[in-house]
């Protein structure tokens, strides 16, 4: 820019047309680089693909899928910045997509809305950096960071942290009862002989053979703040379910019955994530 201005000043004052030619070329050069820089960030779409489990304060890899929708031009030197971390894509081919994972840390638990990725590029010449803010409509739920709960072992702490419920229905325990077929039971549980006798389908009910279920009550957890309690609860959820123990959750009036599946665990963590702070 300074070079062009200086030469332009010299051209006007000397009336030298060759200097005008140089100045005209430099101006055209700047215009073209600006235009190509603008095109470089145009037609880019970014999709955020967060991992299933994100814990506050813990580094995680968030994946972004970049799609260059331009028909003719490849995009170059894209630097994507997300929550203070960045990644570089040297080249994003036209009409194609690529993925990059960015290590980042969410500082607080809860629903994170209005997330955005800042894409910048010095292309084509490193004089100016163009930026593009890509916003995401979806929210990302960040679970509370688990706070290890050493006082609670698998058995010793169970009375302190929850209450024992009656045995839940299961598949591989002792025969506990005979009931009507509700349509949800597997066919192998149908008691054919009884069914024939009663003219209706009867199924065998079994006790579960797993460990005793636990319902975590946030208010009974030893913690000074809600956040600390939530962190300990998250630790318990993960720890107990890893030990194959069904876990439920009581959050004030809300009671989530115990369960053992992965989706159940994520549901509990989600509830903990959005639980109001103090």
């Amino acid at each position: 820019m300074a070079l062009t201005l200086l030469l332009g000043f010299a051209a006007v004052n000397t009336g030298n047309n060759l200097l005008f030619l140089v100045v005209a070329s430099l101006l055209a050069f700047m215009a073209l680089t600006g235009l190509i820089g603008w095109f470089n960030l145009r037609g880019l779409e970014v999709e955020i693909v967060p991992p299933d489990e994100i814990y506050s304060g813990m580094e995680t890899l968030v994946t972004f899928r970049f799609t260059n929708r331009k028909r003719w031009l490849t995009s170059f030197l894209l630097s994507a910045e997300f929550l203070g971390s960045s990644t570089v894509i040297l080249l994003a081919d036209r009409q194609s997509a690529c993925s990059r994972s960015v290590p980042c840390t969410f500082p607080r638990r809860g629903r994170h809305a209005g997330l955005s990725l800042l894409i910048s590029s010095p292309f084509p010449v490193n004089f100016f950096i163009r930026r593009l803010q890509c916003g995401f409509a979806e929210t990302v739920t960040v679970f509370p960071a688990p706070i290890p709960f050493r006082t609670v072992s698998a058995d010793a702490g169970r009375e302190r942290v929850g209450e024992l419920l009656r045995s839940a229905n299961g598949h591989d325990g002792e025969l506990a009862r005979i009931g009507d077929y509700s349509g949800r039971e597997p066919l192998k549980h149908v008691h054919w002989r009884l069914s024939a006798r009663h003219d209706a389908l009867k199924v065998k009910g079994f006790n579960a053979t797993g460990t005793e279920p636990v319902v975590i009550d946030l208010e009974t957890l030893p913690a000074r703040t809600t956040d600390e309690a939530v962190g300990r609860a998250a630790y318990l959820v993960n720890d107990l379910m890893r030990r194959n123990r069904p876990v439920g959750l009581r959050l004030g009036d809300l009671l989530v019955p115990p369960g053992l599946s992965r989706s159940h665990r994520l549901k509990l963590l989600k509830e903990l994530a959005v639980h109001a702070a103090d």
Binding site: G8, A11, N17, F20, L21, V23, A24, S25, L27, A28, F29, A31, L32, T33, L35, I36, P124
Partner: peptide
């Protein structure tokens, strides 16, 4: 850049 700059430079040359 140069391919596009050449015709543009001619325009600039004329109007500067």
């Amino acid at each position: 850049i140069p391919v596009g700059a050449v015709p543009l430079a001619l325009v600039f040359f004329v109007i500067l």
